[in-house]
Nucleic acid binder design. Sequence first.
DNA 1: AACCAGGAGAGAG
DNA 2: CTCTCTCATGGT
Length: 224
Amino acid sequence: MPFKQLYSKLLSYFGFRDWWPGDSKLEICIGAILTQQTSWSNVERAIEKIKSNGYMNLERLAYLDISSLENLVRSTGFYKTKARYLQGFCKYVLEHYKSLDNLLSKPYEELRKELLGISGIGRETADSIILYASEQLSFVVDAYTKRVLKRVYGIEENDYEYIKALFESLIDKDLDLYKDFHAQIVELCKNICKSDPICSICPISSYCLYNRSELNTKKIKESH
DNA sequence: AACCAGGAGAGAG
DNA sequence: CTCTCTCATGGT
């Protein structure tokens, strides 16, 4: 299928996703770190805990004792690691920029390089923060993006920067498009490819190049 | 009851 | 640069 049709098909099926869910830029950054290798429902609990206890705040997170922070983010798994990541991020921002907005207002190249230098922020997390919190063009690549590339276009590629550049070269430079494209891919892989009987109404199923014998996970094998 | 989720870092080769 | 290991809770 022509690449341009991929997004329009997804959009017409799922509707505009209005990503990223979150009431503030800080919440988006924290969610981006907490959702690493973790389902979003588990992240929501942690974010609600942080908010209801009054800790959705750069300074308070930075100086909260680590064991209390671990307890707040326990539901996201890897909680000891993620507590350190979160606090490290908050302390870094405070010490170097005083406020989150000061960091996020930096231009793309500098911002991305700097985010990648912070422990716990890899490429996907950095790009999520740039796109959804800083609101600059930066296509987010995740496991789902790779899966769609493989299944719809037969491209089996693992190089993050290559895939990112590929998408960015093919789509219009529009902020809402960047945001929603990634959201649509997640929506597709989460709700369609995963659950069994839906495949018949999958918006792009007729374009998938691969049949069940060539898919990599058991659940996807069953649905296609 | 295995299997996996919107990854990242550290170490080895 | 490319593997491989580790981190760990909660849903199916």
